[in-house]
Design a protein around this nucleic acid. Structure first.
Length: 439
RNA sequence: GGAGAGGUGGCGGAGUGGUCGAUCGCGCCGGUCUCGAAAACCGGAGUGGGUGCAAGCCCACCGUGGGUUCGAAUCCCACCCUCUCCGCCA
């Protein structure tokens, strides 16, 4: 959510930011509403101040035993009350209207983010690994002989419909090994704290991380009002909602392995075969809570954490900066990691790492108390709470990572050689045979 | 699901109709003392909003939403949440 003061102070910058995202300027609309709202607040509060004064006088009259005076004041109060109530109601309505408007306006891109309309304008900033030279035509994951017995879309369709999968045998072991390897790496090599969280959350949490109010149709809701999280960003980030942290506690770097649920409402027809795009999938998520000043450094760090996983797996990838027109709603800057999928002969998104600045924190009312500079301890310099910065990134999407491992490791005979880093997690097994057996 | 207790400022914990935005303790900040620190003592400090060049003034906030009253943290109603015990259960 945007800070109305910032818009008031610099409406041009606000509109320029929106323009960079390909959106119409909204400052005049927002500020017009803000002005109305403030005028109404003034009206309502003046009325309330009046009433408060009269109440006090009534109390004094009563204490002084002046019944006539008390009677007169009481009556004058009741006459004014309804008018003031109407003013208060209108003020609240305008306040809510402004808040609702601010809630649906996306975050502004940082200066350094490249301008552009869509994914064609994204900029590659890093490339690692060389796609293997296959001496045969590499297949997509669901067509590889050794994978077929372990990836059952027909049975999943019977149970749940399209965009679901049943994994069996060797493939489940690899899937599970990937999750463990990612978590262990983040915890031990990268110093993140592992959390295990609910996947059912209240609406407030979904508001905090921008899924609501604008993107309700992308997620699932239970009959009693809980939402199924589309990503652990929701639970991890909202752990600090409503809190005031001490600067010394920062940064807080978290990771969690969870199920994720997405309706994929806007993507019918896209990636319909295979398990690239599912309604239910697993992901290891990373979230950092820090000061706005350190957010960019943390963003770079988090990108490295995600890249490290792909490098450990020996999977070729590239990292791109999303252009202004392709960034998600809450992001100030986003890196996407794209892994090489030989079956598709393409790089495909496997991780998205974003800094939101104080945008989500403002929604969540998540703040920190800045450390005071030494020797400046006057009362007026006492540290006021400020909004935190929040960052999130996949580290990584496990299903997509599984696909990448299978496609990149496939052999001419339909077997799959698995990355060495996974062998310990497979009790020394190194490959899936063309018959689908882990050996 | 049943019974009970409770939700107050950064934390702990008072407060049961009118200078209570809230006693007190801890923690925090400044000062005195000290070579320096600790202790002790003195002083300061809630959050959000409106208004004003500013000093300041005003409004709201004691889980949430209603109600009673001239006036509510305090009384009434509904809801939410937490904790304890019992039951059931992975």
């Amino acid at each position: 959510m945007h800070d109305i003061r910032a818009i008031r102070d610099n409406p041009e910058a606000f509109d320029e930011g929106l323009a960079r995202r390909g959106l119409e300027g909204l400052s005049s609309e927002v500020l017009g509403l803000d002005e109305q709202r403030r005028a109404q607040i003034l009206l309502a509060e003046t009325g309330k101040a009046d009433l408060n004064k009269l109440s006090k006088q009534a109390g004094e009259a009563k204490a002084g035993g002046d019944a006539a005076q008390f009677q007169e004041i009481s009556e004058s109060v009741s006459v004014r009350k309804s008018l003031i109530a109407a003013n208060v109601e209108l003020a609240e309505a305008l306040d809510e209207k402004l808040r609702d408007m601010l809630m649906t306006i996306p975050n502004l891109p940082l200066d350094e983010v490249p301008d552009g309309r869509d994914e064609a304008d994204n900029v590659e900033i890093h490339r690692w690994g060389t796609p293997r030279n296959f001496n045969f035509a590499p297949k997509e994951h669901f067509d590889i002989e050794g994978v077929k017995p372990g990836m059952d879309f027909a049975t999943a369709a019977k149970l749940s419909g399209s965009r679901f999968v049943v994994l069996k045998g060797a493939v489940t072991r690899v899937h599970r090994a990937l999750a463990q390897m990612m978590l262990d790496t983040h915890v031990e090599d990268h110093g993140l704290t592992e959390l295990w969280t609910p996947v059912l959350v209240k609406s407030e949490a979904m508001y905090g991380t921008n899924q609501l109010p604008k993107f309700a149709e992308d997620s699932y809701q239970t009959t009693n009002g809980w939402w199924l999280i589309p990503t652990a960003e929701v639970t991890l980030t909202n752990t600090v909602a409503g809190e005031i942290l001490e600067e010394a506690q920062l940064p807080i770097r978290m990771t969690a392995h969870t199920q994720c649920f997405r309706s994929e409402a806007g993507s019918s027809g896209k990636d319909t075969t295979g398990m690239l795009r599912q309604h239910q999938f697993e992901k290891v998520e990373m979230v950092t809570i820090c000061t706005p000043q350190t957010a960019l450094a943390e963003h770079a760090r988090m990108t490295n954490c995600a890249q490290a996983i792909l490098e450990k797996l020996g999977l070729p990838y590239r990292t791109i900066v999303l252009c202004t027109g392709d960034m998600g709603f809450g992001a100030q800057k986003t890196h996407d990691l794209e892994v090489w999928l030989p079956g598709q002969n393409k790089y495909r998104e496997i991780s998205s790492v974003s800094t939101c600045g104080p945008f989500q924190a403002r929604r969540m009312n998540a703040r920190y108390r800045p450390r005071m500079a030494e020797g400046t301890g006057k009362a007026e310099t006492a540290a006021k709470p400020e909004f935190l910065a929040t960052l999130n990134g996949s580290g990584l999407a496990i299903g997509r990572c599984l696909i990448a491992v299978l496609e990149n490791g496939q052999q001419a005979d339909g077997s799959v050689e698995l990355p060495a880093v996974l062998h310990p997690y497979l009790r020394g097994k190194t490959r899936i045979s063309s018959a689908g057996v882990l050996e």
